[in-house]
Amino acid sequence: MPENLFKVNIEEYMLPGQRACQGCGLSLAYRYVLKALRENTIVTFPACCLTVLHGLYPTTSVTIPALNCTLASTAASASGLVAGLNAVNRTDITVVAIAGDGGTFDMGIQALSGAAERGTDFIYVCYDNEGYMNTGTQRSSATPMGALTSTTPVLTKQQPKKDMLRIMEAHDLPYLATTSPAYPIDLYDKFVKAKRIKGARYMQIAVPCPPGWGYAPKDTVRIGRLAVETGIVALFEIEDGKFRFTGRTKTLAEKGNKLPVINYVERQGRFRKMSIEQLRQLQRWVDTRWNEYLKRAEG
């Protein structure tokens, strides 16, 4: 019945009883990623939360073929899969590389940049939970300013988040999009679209993480939604250089009723030591990017 209501694929490729945490934003996002990509997909991923979700040998909780690779080599592994499939003339299969923000922003960036430059025909998905959550909340270059992590336990993180989207955009990709599991239909539609396009495609999912961010598991969707409504995460897609807002961000841009970041910050334990000055800096950082996006959306 929900297939007519939400216009999504009813098939579940992620079986119940998987190993992700309670209220995991990744498992919610991954459920819709797989629904959108359907069969004829090969997933490759490094050691990350997704490996945990896929489970321990000899069983797995996902019915899509998957290949484990080493940490920095996600995009290289995908390039190999594409080359192998081409060699045996299987061009109907979509190769998807998925890595967390550590495996993308920090370690995987050279392999990803190489694959993007070669124009390898694959989808690269970065699920951005803003830290090394799988190994115990260490700081990554995706961690926002003012957040406490296990490697910045006394002083909060002083640097703002790396703008990976701009780095990837510089590769002139045919398709680039940001999504959030708080808006599953938006996420689903973008992956359906990405599957149809040829070339290297980059998708970034802003995934809330209950244990790492310090909030109750029941608030995963609410936090994801607040991230979008405060402009921390902007939902957009860039198709052949053409920038377009989508979903909730589009209505926010039209109405101009973006919330202040304090609404997002106050609900998370990781921001408890944030100073007022850092809060102002975070707000400025969000506003600068938001104004840039607004200018680009106008054309």
């Binding site: 079986l15 190993r19 489970g55 069983t59 909780s61």
Partner: peptide
């Protein structure tokens, strides 16, 4: 050599959590 097969309840009965 090492291929996992899909199974429901890979982490056991997660209702216990």
């Amino acid at each position: 050599s090492a291929m996992a097969t899909p199974a429901v309840g890979e982490a056991g009965k997660t209702g216990d959590w």
